[in-house]
Design a protein around this nucleic acid. Sequence first.
DNA 1: CTGTTAGCGCATTCAC
DNA 2: GTGAATGCGCTAACAG
Lengths: 349, 349
Amino acid sequence: MTFSKPVSTVDSTPVKKRKVTVVEVAEAAGVSVSAVSRAFNPEASISRPLREKVFKAAASLNYKPNRLARGIKSRSSLVGILMTDFNNPFYLPILNSFTTEIQRRNCHSLLINVNSDMDIQEAVELVMEYNVDGLIITSASLPEQLVEACKSQDTPVVIFGRDSHENSVTVVSCDNVLAGRMAADMLLDAGYDRPAFVAGPIGTSATVDRQRGFISRLMERGCNQWQVVEGGEFSYDAGYDATLRIFKGTERPDAMFYADDIMACGGMDALRYELNVKIPDDVGVIGVDDIRLAKSRSYDLSTIRQPNDQMILSSIDALFQHIADPNLPAQSITLPCEPVVRGSTKKGR
Amino acid sequence: MTFSKPVSTVDSTPVKKRKVTVVEVAEAAGVSVSAVSRAFNPEASISRPLREKVFKAAASLNYKPNRLARGIKSRSSLVGILMTDFNNPFYLPILNSFTTEIQRRNCHSLLINVNSDMDIQEAVELVMEYNVDGLIITSASLPEQLVEACKSQDTPVVIFGRDSHENSVTVVSCDNVLAGRMAADMLLDAGYDRPAFVAGPIGTSATVDRQRGFISRLMERGCNQWQVVEGGEFSYDAGYDATLRIFKGTERPDAMFYADDIMACGGMDALRYELNVKIPDDVGVIGVDDIRLAKSRSYDLSTIRQPNDQMILSSIDALFQHIADPNLPAQSITLPCEPVVRGSTKKGR
DNA sequence: CTGTTAGCGCATTCAC
DNA sequence: GTGAATGCGCTAACAG
C-alpha cells in the first residue's frame, strides 16, 4: 500500500510551496470538487450556505484558483493589448484606463509590444496561444494588414483609435475627419490664412482622415494657400524636424496643424527656439489628442481633444459584449471630438 | 458504440474554430504525442529528423501550442509587471524596454495596474494565480509593505527602481544617495547657495535617499541654508504646487532640486510663468531621471540620469537567473547615475 | 442544488 | 531516442 501524495517529512523544508487545489479544499470542507469549482464561479448556481462553507475552508487553506488550469477549458480571463507607440506619452493614460477597466471586470492584461521588426500577423497569433478572451489593438500606426490578421481569428477584437472602412471588425475611434475640420475652423476663425498640415505615419487612418477633414474645410471656406508635409512618426523629434523643413521653404505658413500633440510640442519648440517665431502672433499651432503636456504652462497648446475615457469605455464594453456573445456583429463606434482653445492660437478677432 | 469526439457535419459551419492539438499533429506526422510535445520543447532530447517531421505536420495544420495548458504543469512563460505611476511619463519607455526584453526571452508580460484603492498584497497574490514565472515590480511609490508581500511568495521577484535594506528580495536601482550628492555638487558648483529640495511620495526610498544624499553633501560643503518641502506624488502638478508654496514663504531659495523630472518640469513652469523668476539666473533647477521631456527645448532641464537600459537589463537578467535556479540568493544591484548639465542651471563660474 | 466522472492540451514519468 | 500511460487543476456534462 503506497501513498502517491508526498508525505510531509519531519524536516519541513519548503522544497516548493505546494499549491492548494480544489481537491484539498473539497476534503477540508467536506464537499465535492465541483462544489468548490462552482463556489469560485460567480455565474454558477450554488446555494449560499454551501458557497460560504467552501469559502471558509478555502480561506483557511489559503487556496487560490489556478487561472491557467481554468483557462484551458473555459475563459482565460486574459485580455491581450497590442501596442506599438511606446514613445508617445498619449498612450500611458490609455494603458492606465484599459488595464483598470479590464481588472474591474476581473480579467487581466497581457501586454504585447509589437516591435517594428516583428510581424503583426505573428503578434496576433502569439497572443492567441494564451487563449485570450479578447484582444485590444491600441495603436494608430499599425498598418491595415492588422485588420486581416484579426479577421482570421475567432476571438473578439476591438481596434482602438483608428477608423476602418472594413466593417468586419469592431473599431472605436473619434471622428478624425471632424477633428480636421475643427482645426481648420479654429485657425481660420483666429485669423490665420496660410496653414500647413504636418502628417503622421503614412497609411495611418487617423492622420489621413485629419488631413482630409482639414483640407476640405479650408477649401470650403475659401482658403487655398495651404500646404502639407510628411511628418514621420508621432514624436517630438518628428514634429520638430518637419517644422524646420517646412520653414526652409519659400512659402512660410502662418499656422501649423500637427497630426498629434506630441508632434505639435516638438513643432512649437522648433518655432520658438530655432526659428524665432512668436506663437501665437506670427504662427498659430494646433495639435490633436489633448495629452497632459498640452495644458502645461510651457506649451499651452490649442488642440482637438479626443474623448479618451469614453472611447476606452466603449471599447471595453464592446469587447466584453462580444466575449459574452461571439455572434454579435462587429460595430463601428465613432465618437465626437472637441476643440480646446489655449494660448497657441490667437483669440478669435 | 459511441464517439465522444464531435463528428464533422456535412454543413461545416465553423461553430467554434477547432483548436489543433498535439494529438492531431501526432496523427498527421505518424508519431506519438510525446514526440510532438518534445519537438516543441527546446530543451527536450529528440532527433533532428523527427523534430522536422513534426514541425512540417504542425505547420501544415497551423498548429500552435496552447500556452495555458503548458503552463499548468511547467513554466507559464508569463512574467508579471506590477505598476502604479501611470501618470509619470518616465514609465512608458520603461514599459517598452521591459516588454521587449521579456518577449525576447519568449515570454510575455502580464501588466497589473495596482490602483491606489487595491491592496498590494492582493495584487501580488492575484498575479500568482496565473502561475507567473517571475514578477517585476516597477514603481517607486509602492510602500515597504510590498516587500513583505513578495517574500511570502516562492516566485522570483525583482523590484525595480527602489532600494531596500531588506536583503531578502532582489532589488535593482540606481544609487539615489549618489544622485542627491551629484545634485548638490551641480548646484553649488554653479554658484547657487540657498537650495530647496522638493520631495516625492513619502516613504519612498528613492526620494528619501535622494534627499539624504543631497542634504549631507550640502552640509559637507558648508552650505547650511537649505530647505525641504513635501512634494506629494511624482507629477507635474505636484511640482508646480510645491514650488508656489515654497515661494510664498519668506526664505526664497535660489535653486530647486526636485525628486524627479516631471516634478521639475511642473516646478519650472511655476517659476517662469507664475512667479516670473528667470531660470537659470535667478533660480537653478535640477531633476532626476532624464525623461524625454527633459531634453526638449522648452525645459532643457539639468538632471541626474538614471541608467535605465542597464537597470532594466540587470533586472531581467537577475529575474531569469532566479527563474532558472530558484535557489540563487537575492541580490541587490545598485548602478551609478550620471549628471547631465543643461540650461536650467548656470554654467559653472 | 449537489456529487460523480470524464476530459481540456500538454509534459512527463516509465518502459522499450 | 522514442512511445504508452498517467496526471496537472479545473470545468462541464450528466445523474441524482
